[in-house]
């Protein structure tokens, strides 16, 4: 497994469990990230306070983790682009997770605006990971304009409902060349394992770990699930059938 690295932009990443930070209390942040073995952490720029370092969420993230600022709060492409530039100017590096969300109730992304923002930010030299509603045509378009990864949602953010969009995500995994990272909706380790078994390159989650009674233990559970699912995928999953596979074939007499 040591050579099974995920390439995004110019980085090679060993951990396929990405973490959101918005709901994790700051004092627990380091422990959770370490227990998850996570190397890529997304942080909402709206929560980062460059002026008041003592309250700065970035200081609670262990050294060595790749910080991927997200554009939470953006409702249009123009706002997401602006936020990405603020993050880079503030020293948050070159990665950005594009979130364009004009719906404050279900927090569903606007695929059209996401595509516009991605195209511009790729031109501006960003490594863009695009959060999206699972739609093959949009995923291929994002890929065409240079997205480093596409991030289809498994279910609406924070719902813990699992891979409700499984069929559509499967198609995206089949057809896209860039990494497909399942983001949002993953509520249990078994959901994460399922996404990895399907061939997702990684998963990103926050609520399921942050809101567990013991978020450090839950982070470990997710780490194991992601690793397990990945190993199973690489091992070659057997296909499902609706009938028993007889050990003595019924048509053996033809041989």
């Amino acid at each position: 497994m040591s050579k099974d690295l995920l390439a995004i932009g110019n980085s090679l990443i060993a951990s396929r469990l990405f973490l959101g930070t918005g709901k994790i209390p700051l004092p627990k942040m380091k422990q959770v990230i370490e227990a998850a073995g996570t190397q890529v952490v997304t942080v909402a720029l709206r929560r980062v306070d460059f002026d008041q370092p003592e309250e700065n969420i970035l200081d609670f993230i262990p050294d060595g983790a790749i910080i991927m600022p997200n554009t939470s709060g953006a409702r249009t492409a123009a706002e997401a682009i602006r936020l990405a530039h603020i993050a880079r100017a503030g020293g948050c590096g070159n990665w950005v997770k594009i979130e364009v969300i004009p719906d404050q109730k279900y927090l569903l992304p606007d695929n059209f605006e996401t595509l516009k923002a991605t195209e511009q930010l790729v031109k501006d030299g960003f490594t863009v990971l695009a959060y999206m509603s699972p739609d093959l045509i949009v995923a291929k378009s994002l890929e065409a304009v240079g997205a480093a990864a596409v991030m289809p949602l498994g279910a609406p953010i924070g719902t813990n409902r699992g891979l409700k969009m499984k069929e559509l995500i499967n198609i995206i995994i089949e057809e896209c060349h860039v990494p497909v990272i399942v983001d949002a909706g993953i509520g249990r380790p078994s959901h994460a394992a399922e996404a990895m078994e399907m061939g997702a390159s990684a998963v990103l989650l926050n609520t399921a770990i942050a809101t567990a009674d013991d978020s450090v233990a839950m982070a470990l559970a997710f780490r194991l699930a992601v690793e397990s699912g990945r190993i199973a995928y690489l091992a070659g999953m057997c296909g499902e059938t609706s009938y028993a596979r007889a050990s003595s074939p019924l048509t053996g007499f033809l041989d």
């Binding site: 709206r46 980062v48 936020l83 603020i86």
Partner: peptide, 28 residues
């Protein structure tokens, strides 16, 4: 707030936000 196991948040919006960008896609 911390004693109750919660996190005080002082900032939940980007300063230096360009308000000129404000607004939503027409139709939504």
């Amino acid at each position: 707030i911390r004693r109750q196991g919660y996190q005080p948040v002082m900032k939940d919006w980007p300063a230096s936000w360009n308000q000129g960008d404000a607004g939503v896609r027409s139709g939504f």
